[in-house]
Amino acid sequence: MKLFFRQCTQEDICTLREFSYKTYNETFEETNTPSNMKAYLDKSFDIERLRVELLNANSMFYFLYSDGELSGYLKLNEAPAQTDINDGQSLEIERIYIAKEFQGKGLGSELMDRAIELANMRKKLYVWLGVWEENKKAILFYKKNGFYQIGTHSFFMGDDEQTDYIMRKNL
């Protein structure tokens, strides 16, 4: 399997929107109401919102291609673009998603390794992320990769207030 990473640009905005929508929906549609999913997807992956995020010098998006096919993506934030914590010594992994048809092939680890590599290049002391308390598969993956829980915060899926664990990995 040949893997290739590429940083997203403004020219990728439609692909980023479609792929974000697809992977998020695949991950959470079974555990949330259709109306809450639609509200979240429409808000979070709005073209103008994504344009602003892509233009933010403190945020980075990366596509992962497997044998030439888009298979996953990362969104990373440095302070002050972080969704919480806002510590200049950290890098937030805001999104890390693999398309359903590519899951189970070790690509999540490839994305995680890329995030850690970028954090080290930027001389960060740690990386952190938020993960829904009900996403047991992801929590196990993060623990396996050296993350531990340091707190919680609220996350809104439409009008449903959910709890995310904040997890950290020291570098």
Rank of each mutant, 00 (worst) to 15 (best):
residue 57 A to E: 13
residue 35 S to I: 00
residue 53 E to R: 08
residue 61 F to R: 12
residue 32 N to R: 02
residue 52 V to N: 14
residue 51 R to M: 01
residue 70 L to E: 10
residue 68 G to T: 01
residue 63 F to K: 11
residue 55 L to S: 14
residue 35 S to E: 15
residue 61 F to Y: 15
residue 60 M to E: 13
residue 67 D to R: 01
residue 60 M to I: 00
residue 67 D to S: 08
residue 59 S to E: 01
residue 61 F to G: 04
residue 55 L to D: 13
residue 61 F to T: 04
residue 48 E to F: 03
residue 64 L to E: 02
residue 34 P to S: 06
residue 53 E to N: 07
residue 55 L to E: 15
residue 67 D to L: 04
residue 49 R to Y: 05
residue 70 L to M: 12
residue 70 L to R: 13
residue 41 L to A: 08
residue 44 S to C: 14
residue 45 F to G: 07
residue 70 L to Q: 13
residue 46 D to F: 01
residue 59 S to T: 14
residue 32 N to H: 13
residue 49 R to S: 08
residue 59 S to W: 07
residue 62 Y to D: 08
residue 36 N to E: 09
residue 54 L to H: 07
residue 49 R to H: 12
residue 38 K to P: 02
residue 62 Y to A: 05
residue 33 T to I: 01
residue 52 V to F: 08
residue 55 L to V: 00
residue 36 N to I: 01
residue 61 F to M: 03
residue 48 E to W: 04
residue 36 N to K: 07
residue 68 G to H: 09
residue 33 T to R: 13
residue 51 R to W: 02
residue 42 D to R: 05
residue 61 F to I: 02
residue 64 L to I: 03
residue 62 Y to M: 06
residue 45 F to T: 07
residue 65 Y to V: 03
residue 58 N to T: 00
residue 39 A to S: 15
residue 50 L to A: 05
residue 47 I to M: 10
residue 52 V to C: 09
residue 63 F to E: 10
residue 44 S to N: 15
residue 62 Y to C: 04
residue 63 F to R: 10
residue 65 Y to Q: 12
residue 42 D to E: 15
residue 47 I to E: 15
residue 67 D to Y: 10
residue 43 K to C: 04
residue 38 K to E: 15
residue 57 A to M: 04
residue 35 S to R: 08
residue 40 Y to N: 05
residue 48 E to T: 01
residue 36 N to W: 04
residue 57 A to C: 05
residue 51 R to H: 10
residue 64 L to S: 03
residue 70 L to V: 04
residue 36 N to L: 03
residue 69 E to N: 14
residue 69 E to C: 02
residue 37 M to L: 11
residue 47 I to W: 12
residue 45 F to R: 06
residue 57 A to W: 01
residue 69 E to G: 02
residue 33 T to P: 09
residue 56 N to A: 03
residue 55 L to K: 14
residue 42 D to T: 09
residue 41 L to H: 10
residue 48 E to R: 09
residue 65 Y to L: 14
residue 39 A to N: 08
residue 38 K to Q: 15
residue 68 G to D: 13
residue 67 D to W: 06
residue 34 P to M: 02
residue 43 K to W: 02
residue 66 S to T: 00
residue 61 F to V: 03
residue 52 V to Y: 13
residue 68 G to A: 09
residue 46 D to Y: 05
residue 54 L to M: 13
residue 45 F to V: 02
